[in-house]
Design a protein around this nucleic acid. Sequence first.
DNA 1: GACCGGCATGTAATCGATTTCATCTGCCGT
DNA 2: ACGGCAGATGAAATCGATTACATGCCGGTC
Lengths: 344, 344
Amino acid sequence: MAGIRDVAAAAGVSVATVSRALNGHRSVSPETRERVLGAVDRLGYRPNAVARSLRTDRTRTLGLVISDVMNPYFTELARFTEEEARAHGYSVIIGNADERPELQDHHIRTLLDRRIDGLLVSPADGRSPFAPGTRLPTPPVVLVDRWVPGLDVTVIRAEGATAVRELVAHLHGLGHRRLAVITGPPATTTARERVEAFREALAEQGMHLPEEYVGEGDFRAGSGRRVTERFLDLPEPPEVVFATDNLMALGALDAIRARGLRVPEDIGVAAFDDIPWFQHTDPPLTAVAQPVADLARAAVGALVDLIEGRPARSVTLPARLVVRRSCGEPRAGTPLTPRPRRSA
Amino acid sequence: MAGIRDVAAAAGVSVATVSRALNGHRSVSPETRERVLGAVDRLGYRPNAVARSLRTDRTRTLGLVISDVMNPYFTELARFTEEEARAHGYSVIIGNADERPELQDHHIRTLLDRRIDGLLVSPADGRSPFAPGTRLPTPPVVLVDRWVPGLDVTVIRAEGATAVRELVAHLHGLGHRRLAVITGPPATTTARERVEAFREALAEQGMHLPEEYVGEGDFRAGSGRRVTERFLDLPEPPEVVFATDNLMALGALDAIRARGLRVPEDIGVAAFDDIPWFQHTDPPLTAVAQPVADLARAAVGALVDLIEGRPARSVTLPARLVVRRSCGEPRAGTPLTPRPRRSA
DNA sequence: GACCGGCATGTAATCGATTTCATCTGCCGT
DNA sequence: ACGGCAGATGAAATCGATTACATGCCGGTC
C-alpha cells in the first residue's frame, strides 16, 4: 500500500522527482534516479494505475467485444488479441456479447465508462455498436470479422467468398448436386457474405439453391440441429449441408447422428471456420479456415496505430479451404489446395 | 465528454448534489433529483469510472486468472464467472496464463495495479500466486479448480477422486486390466489428485499401475500425443489411456489415429473434464464432468462475500462420470451413474 | 422566543498520480 | 562581472469523481 509519497520520503526527494524517475524523464540526475529506484523496490512500490489513468487520460487498455466466447473461433481471436496487445504494452478487457445485442451494448457502455483507449468489436448484429445514445467520447474503434455496412470504421476481416467458391467446386467435383446451407443471423455481414458466395458459386457450377435448402440459424449449435432436422424431413433431403459457422456444424452432426445416418455416406457436412476439434470429429470435418492469428495481429496493430495518432487502413485477409472427409472421400487427383498464405 | 460539473451547471445545482442524486442518497429532494436526472440524460452523462474508483477505492471489477483460455473447460469457467459477476454488479478482467507461471505473475501484477476488488485464480503451478515480492495490498482471493497446498485461502473446486474411482470400476467392468494415465504438471493439485485417485482405485480393484504406464504431460494436446506414442511403443501397450485433461485426450486420439489404430477396439481413451465436443469426437469420449457453472457461481459468490466483508468457506462440488463409447461398449446392465447432483 | 434537530444543499478536501511553472545552481560567453 | 541558459528539483494545480463538514432554513418543543 506504499504510495508515491512514501517513496519520495524514503528517497528524500519530492513526489515530482519520483514520478519523473519512474517515467524515464531525461532531466533526473543518475544518482537521484538510482536512489528513487532503490526506494521503489525496497518498498515494493507499484504505481496506482487508477490514479495514473485519471491524470493522463490513458488506461493502456483495449476493449474487445466478441459475439460468443464459447465459439472456439472467437476464443482463439481473443487469445491472440491479448497476446498482440500485450506486446504493444496494452491489456485487454473482453466482453462476451453471447450473440445478444443488448448484452453487447452493456459491455460497450461499461468499457467506455472505464475509459479504455481503444475498442475492438465483432458486432452481434447489423446496428452501429454505438446506437444507444452514446455521447461518450468514443475512442478509436476497429471492427473485426464482422462489420456494419454504413459505418465508416476500420475493418479487419477475412475474405470468405473465394474459399466458399472453392468449397462448392470441391463438392461439385465429388458429385454432389443438392447442397443446402445453414445461414447465420441475416444482420451479420459474415452470414450474408457466406450465403451469397455460396449461392453464386452454385450458379457458377450450374446448380441452384432452392428456398427449402436455406435454413436460418443463429450461430449456435441448437439452431444447426433444428435446421438440419428440417432438411432431413424434406421429401428430397440435401446431399451436403454447409453450416456457415462451426457450432452450427456441430448441431448438424448431432441431428444427423440422432437419425442414425452416417456422414459422409448418407449426407455430407461442411463448415465455415475451421478449429482444431474438427480434426477429431466423426468424421473429420471439411471446413473453411480463417487466419485467426493474423486477423488478431492486424486488428490490434490498426487499433494501436489509431490510438497513437497514426492512420489505419482496413485489411482483408484470405481464408482457405481445408478438405477432410466429411463430404466424401476426395478422389485421387483432386487438388488439396494448400495454397501459400498471402497477406493483403 | 460531459463531466459532472456540466451536469451540475445544467441542473443549476452543485456537483455534490449531482453525485448524491446519482448515488441514491436519501437527502436529495425529489424535485432536484428529477432535475439532475433530466440534465444527466439530456447531456448523455456517464460517470467516469476511473475517477470514481480513485476516490472510492473500489473498481467493481474482479480479476480472473486462468491457466489456458483455449481449454474449453476454462473458457466455460470464464464465461460463467463473468455471467455471475455481472449479476452481482461486477465486471471481470480475464488473464490467460497459458500454463506459464511467469505469465500468470504478469497478469496478477497487472490486475493488482488496476486495483481490482477481488481475484479468482486457478494457479498454473504450485507456488503461491503472490510469490514475486508482492507487497501490494492483496485484495480478497479465491482459488478455483486448482489450489496451492500451504496457502490458507478459500478454495472452490470439484472432487474428482470419486468419479475417477467410478471410471476405473467401469473400465474394470469392461474387462480392461492394463490402464495407463497421462498426468498433468506435478505442481498442479488437480493433476496430483487425479493420478492419486486413479492409482488408489486401481489398487482397490486389485490392479496396479506400473511406472511405464504413467506419463507426464502439461495439459496441452501436444504432450498428450507424445506420451501416448510412448505408451504405444511399449512391448505391451495399455488397453486404455486415461488423460487427466481434455486437451491431452485429444492428443492421445491424434497419436492413436496416426498409428492407424482404432478406438476403442485397439485401445480405449478416457478423459478428465467433459466438454461438448466430446460427444462428437470419433468415437464419443467417456469422461469425468465437472459442474463448471456451479463452480463459477460458488467462486464468484465466495469472492463477493469476502469483498463485502462477509466470511466465505471453501466448497467442494462432486464431479460425475459420463460414459460414452471410447472405452468399449458398456455391457447391458452396467449402471450409467447419472446420480442426482448434490451441492456441498 | 430561544433552541434543537433534521433536511437540503453547498464548499472544499481528498484519492494518487502527472505535469506546469517556478526556483536554484552552475557554467559559459562576452 | 554579469546576463542568460540549461539542468535538476520542488510546490502546487490538475484529472473527475465522492464525501466530511459547514450552512441555512423550517418546524416543533418547552
